[in-house]
């Protein structure tokens, strides 16, 4: 038994938003792989729930004529990973989600939940950041669209207001076409683990010259972050050992990993430096795919 005190099963999105507005303590329940765990731990903050798990309108995965891809907040990791559109156009999204938990978790966990819970270790965050994904959010007053960059505001915190619901993710063709992208999750186990460090890179090249690099990290700062200094330094350089070593030095200014019982700062920094080089290389190998 979960120690729930109130449960409302939303009939549609508007109903869900209304229910959130009506109950100041209510929180959204999607796949539940974070929420139900918190409830079991006795976290009273999740005792009042608005269940949006049944809202099929938030599950779509499609692409419009302009090439903009839309992924509903409630699409499960497994469905996204296996979807043809994602495989062909957003392989780095599929690759990132594939590192989450194990099969059973991916079968119910949603990408919406992964981002909305604000975890600094969220495995979809790097890929969303390097693709400059947009988020479409529904609130009582209507819809707003925000960039992923800036969505996270601190550990476990996002810009989402309490009565807002994430509807879908938008991926613009200008962001995902012509890039090579990769994600590496560095963790203690090869599955069912929380990232010690996550690193994503999206690369555009002309010949062997980097025209643009987008680089993101999780667990390297209080929120998932992009690396503006490293990205700037990379632009216009030849992709070679020398450049990679240079980037590995600069990245230290873009991140602020901290010491916890899980890992020490020095160690995390070493892994960050190593991953900048390995993931950028890997992104280059992925070039020319989509």
């Amino acid at each position: 038994m979960f120690a729930m005190e109130n449960y409302h099963r939303a009939t549609d999105l508007n109903d869900a938003v209304r229910a959130l507005a009506a109950h100041p303590e209510a929180r959204v329940l999607a796949g539940g792989t974070d929420v139900l765990i918190r409830l079991r731990e006795g976290d009273g903050a999740f005792a009042h729930l608005v269940d949006i798990n049944g809202l099929d309108e938030l599950r779509q995965i499609d692409m419009d004529t302009s090439g903009t891809i839309r992924i509903g907040a409630l699409a499960t990791c497994t469905r996204i990973i296996e979807h043809e559109i994602i495989r062909s156009h957003l392989p780095v999204i599929a690759a990132s989600l594939a590192t989450i938990g194990g099969p059973q978790i991916r079968n119910i966990a949603t990408m919406g939940g992964n981002i909305c819970n604000g975890a600094v270790s969220a495995d979809s965050a790097c890929a969303l950041l390097i693709l400059d994904t947009e988020l479409v959010i529904q609130g009582p007053a209507g819809e707003r669209t925000v960039p992923i960059l800036g969505f996270h505001t601190g550990p476990g915190r996002t810009i989402l207001r309490r009565d807002e619901i994430l509807k879908y993710f938008l991926f613009r063709p200008g962001q995902y076409r012509g890039i090579g992208a990769a994600y590496c999750k560095y963790a203690m186990r090869s599955a069912m683990d929380i990232a010690t460090i996550g690193c994503g890179a999206a690369l555009r090249m002309e010949g062997d010259i980097i025209t643009s690099l987008k680089l993101a990290f999780t667990v390297a700062a209080p929120t998932p972050v992009r690396c503006p200094r490293t990205e700037e330094a990379a632009a216009g350089r030849r992709l070679d050992e020398e450049t990679l070593a240079l980037l590995a030095g600069i990245v230290e200014d873009d991140v602020q990993p901290r010491t916890s019982w899980r890992a020490e700062r020095d160690f995390r920094m070493h892994i960050i430096r190593t991953l900048v080089q390995r993931v950028t290389r890997e992104a280059a190998n992925q070039q020319g795919g989509n």
Partner: peptide, 9 residues
């Protein structure tokens, strides 16, 4: 989650 029993992988 934090005590690392090896998985199949």
């Amino acid at each position: 989650l934090d005590y690392k029993v090896p998985t199949c992988t």
